[in-house]
Nucleic acid binder design. Structure first.
Length: 820
RNA sequence: GCCCUGGUGGUGAAAUCGGUAGACACGUUGGACUUAAAAUCCAAUGAGGCUAAUACCCUCGUGCCGGUUCAAGUCCGGCCCAGGGCACCA
């Protein structure tokens, strides 16, 4: 028996246990059905779920359940991105063990996810911090190393003092650490890198294949990869014939206007280029630039400064001798680290030339040229010898060709993307599996010795260095090649490595012999629908694409893009701003589950806004959704004795029956379409409400109810709402005597023949303005409809005394009379 | 500066192809039920005008200006604003 009223908390607890015990959501690898892989970005086990998680996982879960009901074998897994700083900080601040802290959090959050009612196959759960997972992270690193895609070098790297570790370029946001928001400085260090730049071209080109991704994400990635076409020009140094300075430029057409050259403070040949009398000044300048924080250095507000080196280059086009300066507006690791300066046609060069009184030579002319301002527009060449008069786009090609012919230049494609710095001087990550032997150098750890386990004898309280270095057992080891003394690498990997392949592991999560079976991974991947936050538009999504391509080239899998369709869900807001602890506007999912139940939370979080847009949480909105579920529930409890699971719609229906049958079929059609089309759950929910309203209208006159029709309506609604109200629908279905789980039933089909309608509203327009609405029947000819329109009393005043010059008829909808 | 996304009632929003703008809700107001309240059910609700009237009718209305069309939230051209991304990238 169903209760008279809806008590979600009791119901939900019961079904969580039932589904767990019966493994209702177990996904077999073998199936006759087509596969569908629905994936949420896995959570960091920070302690508790927040509403962003609830939104993310509810969206994916509704999709997974919908696809399952539509005949797919659905893979819907979940796991934990469980390495990273917060666990280590907890260890430092509260003396906790990072492992215990993390595993406890996973336990708690897993319970919450189950309470949320996700249709997850928990047998495939992964946690990146577990040995059976990071063993394979290490193994994959070694494959990349063997392929030449992982290398170690000394480089100026981004250093976060607060986290006492280096950061990848992608993790520096506005010159600040992505995690702790403190200022990032530069430091020269020996670090491990992954050669993502080898894939720059294909990562950019393949964005075109990703038709199921939003343009916003694709352009963000394209901008980040930053391809530009230009020219390398090489300049001879007047004072030193053995030296040559190459520059990268996108404006070779302005080469005749070069008046000086700039090198970055970190430029490799800078000492050789400095004359003794300038040495002191240059050194001081470089020291200062080094100390400057990334933010100050990159600020576009800051006035550019520099000092001359005392040496000169010769412009090969003009023979002009131009001074070489060091200036911090040149970047060491982009292009060649040296820039040719054309003050007339580059705003940075222009400002610099004005400040230091360097000459300005115009070489591009066009309307609007003003010698007192920089001119960066298109034009034709002047003061450029044989190229005078040429259109500047044309001149880019011709001048590059000229340089190439004469041996001082060539065209060049330049990317902004840098190699991915993956070393972290932290404890809670996967150790980089290499050892250093005095004789044999850097050697990868052999497969049989994996995983390289994290040591437990560490002191987390040390400052300024990795806690791993305090271990007495970790560092010393033997060389796998010669058996001699060797030292382990003490850096761990960036956690983004762990999350760059987890979606592959779900295909074969328990494999002890390989990260995954190739057949299984090729069967399940690519992911059909990936759902997660926009904040990963560059970091995680770019890294994962790179990993997939690299692993394909290594031969571990056969596809080249991991995620066919990507849905980036909007943020959850409260009172107009993002929910955050510091603002104090968070809503705890546990409290919502306890008061209203997870079904209400699920319904509400998909109801008001389309998934991609930001969603404003309101207490009144939750209340409204709860009331709606109560309203739905009451229908079933009231008619539980009358509902027939094996109903049969009568052959002939009364008008009232027909209207309800039509409304339900229309609902089936619309809901199905809206889910398939961009997952417009907000309109799906409004259709649930419309169907419910229609059923209430139907039962208002209790003396006139056909229970076959009512059963049809109620059971259709129950299945339609089941992907959202997962607990309530199960409770009702099984209490009514349904066999098995409602979540294994097929999706209802729309009976198109029941959509036909006899009565229509004909809209009559005169010159496009609505003048009348006439109730009539379908099947009238255009002439008959026009007749109705012309004879309408309301229309007459607008056409009398005028001639109808044209009549447009949209069958069964509109007649528009054009009058003059 | 460049790129992306968006702009519709008091609020969240809807509107497959250009064809009844504001579905469905939240809120508000009124009514029914009740000793009363809550809950529930029913109804009204873009703005302005006309009016005794919340009836009928008229005008205006999807950021702004213009265009195409019998007909524009939707298509085209030019702007404005908000949010996000990138940025001394040569």
């Amino acid at each position: 028996m169903l209760n008279a009223e809806y008590y979600p908390v009791k119901i939900e607890k019961k079904w969580v246990e039932f589904w767990d015990k019966n493994k209702t959501y177990k996904t077999p690898n073998e199936s006759d059905k087509p596969k569908y892989y629905a994936l949420s970005m896995f959570p960091y086990p920070s302690g508790k779920l927040h509403m962003g998680h609830v939104r993310n996982y509810t969206i994916t879960d509704v999709i997974a359940r919908f696809k399952k009901a539509n005949g797919y074998n659905v893979l819907h897994p979940m796991g934990w991105d469980s390495f990273g700083m917060p666990a280590e900080n907890a260890a430092i601040q509260h003396g906790a063990n990072p492992k215990t802290w993390t595993l406890d959090n996973i336990d708690y959050m897993k319970k919450q996810l189950k309470m949320l009612g996700l249709s997850v196959d928990w047998d495939r759960e992964v946690a990146t911090c577990k040995e059976e997972y990071y063993k394979w992270t290490q193994w994959l690193f070694i494959q990349l190393y063997k392929k030449g895609l992982a290398y170690k070098k000394e480089a100026p790297v981004n250093w976060c003092e607060e986290c006492a570790t280096v950061l990848a370029n992608e993790q520096v946001i506005d010159g600040k650490c992505w995690r702790c928001d403190s200022t990032v400085t530069k430091k020269n260090l020996q670090q491990w890198f992954l050669k993502i730049t080898d894939y720059a071209e294909v990562l950019l080109d393949d964005l075109e294949k990703l038709t199921g991704w939003g343009d916003n994400v694709k352009t963000m990635q394209a901008n980040w990869i930053g391809k530009s076409y230009g020219t390398i020009l090489k300049f001879k140094v007047k004072e030193n014939e053995n030296l040559e300075i190459p520059v990268f430029t996108t404006r070779p057409d302005t080469s005749y206007g070069i008046t000086y050259l700039v090198v970055a403070p970190e430029y490799k040949d800078i000492e050789k280029l400095t004359t003794p009398e300038n040495k002191e000044k240059v050194e001081a300048y470089r020291e200062n630039a080094k100390r400057m924080s990334e933010i100050d250095r990159l600020s576009t507000e800051r006035v550019k400064t520099g000092v001359p080196l005392g040496t000169h280059i010769i412009n090969p086009f003009t023979g002009r001798v131009c001074p070489i300066w060091v200036a911090d507006y040149a970047i060491a690791d982009y292009g060649t680290g040296a820039v040719m300066a054309v003050p007339a046609h580059d705003s940075r060069d222009f400002d610099f030339a004005k400040k230091y009184n360097l000459p300005i030579i115009q070489v591009i002319n066009n309307e609007g040229y003003d010698p007192n301002k920089v001119f960066e527009e298109e034009g034709y060449l002047v003061n450029s010898g044989e190229f005078d008069g040429m259109n500047n786009e044309e001149a880019k090609k011709k001048i590059t060709e000229f340089a190439e012919k004469n041996g001082f230049g060539h065209s060049k494609v330049q990317f902004r993307l840098r190699d991915w710095l993956i070393s972290r001087q932290r404890y809670w990550g996967a150790p980089i599996p290499v050892v250093y032997c005095e004789k044999c150098g850097c050697q990868p750890v052999p497969d049989k010795d994996l995983p390289v386990k994290l040591p437990t004898d560490v002191d987390f309280s040390v400052q300024g260095k990795s806690p791993i270095l305090t271990s007495k057992t970790f560092l010393e080891t033997t060389c796998p090649v010669c058996g001699g003394k060797a030292t382990r690498e003490s850096d761990t990997m960036d956690t983004f490595i762990c999350s760059s392949w987890y979606y592959l592991r779900y295909a074969d999560a328990k494999n002890d012999n390989a990260p995954f079976d190739k057949k299984l991974v090729n069967k399940w991947l690519p992911v059909d629908q990936y759902v997660g936050g926009i904040e990963h538009a560059i970091l995680h999504l770019l890294y994962s694409r790179f990993f997939t391509k690299a692993l394909r080239d290594i031969g571990l899998l056969d596809f080249d893009e991991p995620f066919s369709n990507l849905l980036t869900q909007g943020m959850v807001l409260k009172d107009g701003s993002k929910m955050s602890k510091s603002k104090g506007n968070t809503v705890d999912p546990d409290e919502i589950f306890a008061t209203y139940g997870a079904d209400t939370a699920r319904l509400f979080i998909i109801s008001d806004s389309p998934p991609a847009r930001d969603f404003d949480w309101s207490d009144a909105g939750v209340e409204g959704c709860y009331k709606f579920l109560c309203r739905v529930y009451r229908l079933y409890s009231k008619y539980q004795d009358k509902i027939k699971l094996d109903y049969k719609l009568p052959a002939s229906l009364t008008k009232k029956d027909e209207a309800l049958v039509r409304e339900v079929n229309l609902g089936i059609k619309k809901i199905t379409q809206d889910i398939e089309n961009e997952f417009q759950f907000n309109t799906v929910v409004s259709k649930y409400r419309e169907i419910t309203n229609s059923i209430y209208e139907y039962i208002r006159d209790e003396s006139d109810i056909n229970y076959e029709v009512l059963s049809f309506a109620l059971l259709s609604l129950l299945k339609l709402i089941s992907p959202v109200a997962v607990f309530m629908s199960e409770e009702i279905y099984q209490t009514l005597g349904g066999s098995g789980s409602i979540h294994n039933l097929d999706w209802p089909k729309c009976d198109e023949t029941k959509l036909e309608q006899n009565n229509i509203t004909l809209v009559v327009q005169v010159n496009g303005k609505i003048r009348d609405k006439i109730e009539t029947t379908t099947g009238k000819t255009n002439e008959e409809l026009t007749e109705l329109a012309v004879n309408s009393e309301k229309t007459k005043p607008f056409i009398s005394g005028k001639t109808i010059v044209k009549t447009i008829v949209v069958p069964n909808k509109i007649v528009n009379l054009v009058v003059k």
